[in-house]
Design a protein around this nucleic acid. Structure first.
Lengths: 343, 343
DNA sequence: ATTTAGCACTCGATCTGCCAGAGTGCTAAC
DNA sequence: GTTAGCACTCTGGCAGATCGAGTGCTAAAT
């Protein structure tokens, strides 16, 4: 599997040319573009060997070569020079997400937007999952005469809120008492254990209060449940339309896949920490066999929390994307850690 | 411009057949489908006259007829029988949006989602605009040692929140004092007048407090600013891909238009109350000349607040959509009014 | 032992002409 | 006013011809 220097350069050139133009690369144009001092015939021989090794393939007999999925893999792992992100790019990314850095969901939604508009691919992000977190605090705020808001913060960096109605006028006193009770009972409790059954027993221990505040208790349970869920933010699916790589059918399959948040979430969750590139079938999702996925997990307060990702044609400018996504997922983690005061 | 009963029936049948099949309707198939006791030749004569009146048109000489934009207009205004929404449909719609009825933005986003999935067109909704509202209350909640959340409610049914950081540990006392100050100064003030300049003078009148809480003041100003904005929720753009009515080019123009929230917002804002159908060029947007727009404004607490809309090909099943959208915008209005305790 | 030039071959893309089918408009009869 | 009949028009699909890009192989050159 050792490649000669010349083969390495040829493979890299094929990938880069193909990514740039979208057309199979012939021996002639390869010679022209990369000023090798060899003839097209030599290049042809090399290419033919790369084909035999499974790194290049031909759409049909009399066409040029395109990289195989294995070819892309070798390119990414050993040939591609990582292009460090520039100061301008950093500033651009920061400036796009900073305005929504006041709320985890808004932030991740903003990240998906900027990713989509920057890469021109489809972008996905998941909000921090509070699955393994414990309740840090519950807050109660009156929002009108008979409505109030429950806000539930977890140690995993989530913050969820919900408005509820009462059928009597709320007073600061009532809320204060109930606030004490709630925090006494719930602080430090793993969100995962706040099930309907748990709330039942909690209600029992509250006596009269539980009757009055049943809508509040329901709201608390719902925010707890919701803290465990990762929201999936999807953006820029339409970008995929403009790649000739995808036909009507591929598009349908991909869009259909993207429209299933649960599966998408699972796909992003089965990655390791850090950044990972999945080319075509490597994702083990038949719907994505013609697409590539670049996933980068982010951490909040030192713990793995969520992911950002883009999905595009296998023919993708990996170099540019990887550095940007690494920076972006770092930024997100930092901002959320700060926002949630977890540092 | 009076149409004979037979012409009316023929026009209606052409619209309905064309909407159903997407193919130009010929005299023969018209005769078959609608069991008129006349021959295709007679129908041909009638159709030819409808063409002369500008209600039908022919893609080319030897094709069947399709409705012109004027034809659709006549159909919608005078021929279509409003199909009342069924109990099941109501239940379905309610069940889809109820789970997100705890927050205005979530709700409108949910509405756009259900609209898109139900109609298979692109759906848009705008969150309530607080432009003309006054501040009902400002709430402050501690969310961690050094962070707190500002929540700002307006009489227009908006509720916006923002987390801010302090560089000292917050205490309930500080927050309580600051809460009193804020509400004294801001309750009843039109959100539109809470400009940076206004906050400047407010800060001046707060003395020491203003220094300590400058990040809070900024957060308040930002929530006020944001209360005035309508957020645009967009969903289901990809649905448009699957209509043969649109070619690559039309799709590009439409998607491009949809990606500009400001214009979209303006388009929805220039409508009257209630529901309106805009066929093709009636929207006065060249990008939408091949599409139709169904907009329905909703009210919160008795005042016009926002809109929901769908965008699809001119060839659209208007009857079904109109009744559903009327119900949905009513529901949204009701839910928000209740959520914000404005009834 | 590599590299190169030359050449026959393959295959997709494009263009052409052709034909069938669907639908019309018109005319003349009912 | 309605209908049957007919000539006419236009699209869409299909078959065949041609073009061009690119390959693989062979034999000569370095």
């Amino acid at each position: 599997m050792e490649l000669s220097e010349r083969k390495r350069r040829i493979l890299a050139a094929v990938v880069e040319l193909y990514v740039a133009t979208g057309e199979p690369v012939g021996s002639k144009s390869l010679c022209d573009t990369l000023g090798f001092n060899v003839s097209s015939a030599t290049v042809r021989n090399e290419m033919s060997e790369l084909s035999r090794m499974g790194l290049l393939e031909q759409p049909h007999t009399s066409a040029g070569r395109i990289p195989s999925q294995k070819g892309y893999r070798v390119y990414i792992d050993t040939l591609m020079k990582p292009r460090p992100i520039s100061r301008e790019e950093k500033q651009y990314l920061d400036s796009m997400i900073l305005p929504s850095a006041y709320d985890p969901e808004k932030l991740l939604d903003g990240v998906a937007k900027v990713l989509a508009s920057m890469t021109k691919y489809a972008a996905v992000s998941t909000t921090p999952s509070g699955e393994s977190g414990v309740i840090r605090a519950v807050q109660l705020v009156q929002t009108s005469r008979r409505t109030a808001m429950v806000i539930l913060m977890t140690s995993a960096g989530t913050m969820k809120s919900r408005v509820f109605h009462c059928d009597f006028d709320l007073t600061p006193e009532i809320l204060r008492v109930f606030f004490r009770l709630l925090n006494d009972k719930l602080a430090g409790v793993p969100v995962a254990s706040v099930t309907p059954a748990y709330m039942q027993t909690l209600a029992a221990s509250l006596g009269d209060m539980a009757m009055m505040m049943s809508s509040a208790l329901i709201a608390v349970a719902e925010t707890a449940q919701e803290s465990m869920r990762s929201d999936v933010c999807l953006n820029g699916e339409v970008n995929l339309l403009f790649y000739p790589d995808f036909g009507q059918n591929e598009i349908r399959r991909i869009v259909d896949f993207l429209s299933r948040p649960a599966e998408l979430c699972r796909l992003l969750a089965e990655r390791n920490r850090g950044l990972q590139v999945l080319i075509g079938r490597e994702s083990r999702r038949p719907e994505l066999e013609d697409s590539s996925l670049v996933v980068s997990r982010y951490e909040v307060g030192g713990h793995d929390a969520g992911a950002i990702a883009i999905i595009g044609p296998t023919r993708m400018n990996y170099g540019k994307i990887i550095s940007n996504m690494e920076y972006l997922s770092d930024s997100v983690g930092r901002m959320l850690t700060e926002l949630m005061d977890l540092d």
